[in-house]
Design a protein around this nucleic acid. Sequence first.
DNA 1: CCTGGCACTCGATGGACACGAGTGCCAGAA
DNA 2: TTCTGGCACTCGTGTCCATCGAGTGCCAGG
Lengths: 338, 338
Amino acid sequence: MLSERRLEVLRAIVQDYVGTEEPVGSKALTERHRLGVSPATVRNDMAALEDEGYIAQPHTSAGRIPTDKGYRLFVDKLAGVKPLSTPERRAIQNFLDGAVDLDDVVGRTVRLLAQLTRQVAVVQYPSLTRSTVRHVELLSMSPARVMLVLITDTGRVEQRMVDCPAPVSEESLADLRARLNSRVVGRRFSDVPQLVQDLPESFEQEDRATVSTVLATLLETLVEETEERLMIGGTANLTRFAHDFPLTIRPVLEALEEQVVLLKLLGEAKDSGMTVRIGHENAHEGLNSTSVVAVGYGSGDEAVAKLGVVGPTRMDYPGTMGAVRAVARYVGQILAES
Amino acid sequence: MLSERRLEVLRAIVQDYVGTEEPVGSKALTERHRLGVSPATVRNDMAALEDEGYIAQPHTSAGRIPTDKGYRLFVDKLAGVKPLSTPERRAIQNFLDGAVDLDDVVGRTVRLLAQLTRQVAVVQYPSLTRSTVRHVELLSMSPARVMLVLITDTGRVEQRMVDCPAPVSEESLADLRARLNSRVVGRRFSDVPQLVQDLPESFEQEDRATVSTVLATLLETLVEETEERLMIGGTANLTRFAHDFPLTIRPVLEALEEQVVLLKLLGEAKDSGMTVRIGHENAHEGLNSTSVVAVGYGSGDEAVAKLGVVGPTRMDYPGTMGAVRAVARYVGQILAES
DNA sequence: CCTGGCACTCGATGGACACGAGTGCCAGAA
DNA sequence: TTCTGGCACTCGTGTCCATCGAGTGCCAGG
């Protein structure tokens, strides 16, 4: 177990390094922090911290920088979450209040988060897995062609064209629409398959094939749309730590372009509470020198999706965590209102 | 007027510089191109080209690089459009054929274009200004709340919530839905306002306010959605020329995040034919060291939107133009089929 | 257990210098 | 008039080397 003072030294190292972006030495530490001991003592502590793997030196005769393990300890034990100032909170609310639809909410959130944290923001669209069906609409486009429109309680709309095996009359379609909606409206996506299972049987022989086709497309849409979408922003902020360029920034940009990677990244975050993944804790190689701060958000008690930021491991964790948490909270409010 | 040989020298300079990314000197030029004259002669030609402003030298005693004006001449007079190889064409078609809906088409196009040109790709969603209405759907969510869903012939779906001034019956809603659709289906967006102008008057007194509200929301949606969306991809390709400029990459990333800027950029492109804007020809400051190659695409004869790439002024213009043109052509085909 | 002192390491900084690619100019040849 | 070979000059690049100083580890003494 590390002594109280050594933890204090680690905290000081992290804070200084995050501020200056330069390796921090024993002398500078004692000058900038009231540790009450001499540089030599700090040096001993640093040697101990290095033995334990919390800090490292880039080269002999340079200062120390925190390792991933060091940041991990800092986040877990030494740092709180820095709450936002009142003006900041008010600005968030004002900015998000202006949104007109779901796309707009997500877009504004991403910009807001990028601006607040000065890092790359990632916001997942509200998930459909826990969503319920608000309405299913069927539109006849041509005799044997139907457009299926699915509307969810989070305000999302998805549409698919369905090519029917046989022409279908307006009456049959209206009938199907009515019966379908009476069964699935208000139900969860996951419950839909068994709720519509026996629906084809209740139709005339000639329409059964069509009904089955439409239902198949509906189920397919539900599954496909469970693979969720997301929006990112603030990539220009990557250039702020351009010293490491372009070796570092390139794989990050590549990772950010692969939605699959990002979705997995957010998926790994805990459902409740904040998740911080530091450096090599991220499975994806390109993100080994970045940290991810993510949190779930939702309109009610349950988290329906996640949002977060991606930045250098050398980031202001308390501030970032505060901003992420605050934004998630307000977005949840906005979604609940609409 | 420049002599034939001097133009040939300029072409050689552009080609070499694009290939090597290094200033090109007179000796290297005569070695790599069969100009049939000595380095000294080339030097004189280069001096003339520099006087005219087509090339410049970064410092004394370095080779020459093309200026924006030089690239302009190259694109206008010296370079053709390099057609893609047959395997490339086949790959494009295969890749685009797999798309399931509009989002997917645009997403695939962006990835394809980024990969082919190894630059940043920008694809505008098919425009609504020239689109027609395929269907308008009205759904009662609660007594005084209606959801308006607009479906366009390009497959886009937009929805809005409408808060009605008074409760509205299912019958009135069905009535409005039927009358509205009979008037606007198949019509252009721009024609809709006058087509529905007198619609409220034909309703009962008690429903008029509601009808007006719904129509207002519809018109609003039409206008709002005319402000078009777009998708970008391949930003990681920016790092390919990051050696020059962490200084350059930042404003470019910033510009790319502002959809307004990009939309204006594409908007400046000619409706038909290919548009190439080189360096300072771009109005936006952050893009002063990039070139934009854009072209319109559409399902029929008319261009419904634009797509293009953003890259360094030092790009392979013939190849890029060929890829952009080919992709636009195939996307048009895909859209026409669906 | 803390502190001051001391020798040592090693990256960063900057000057001196040689190298070479590339230029401009000029006189003579075609 | 146009092209060519030659020549002196410029200037950015790379190398070598000496210096500097921040920072370290270790040790003896309080």
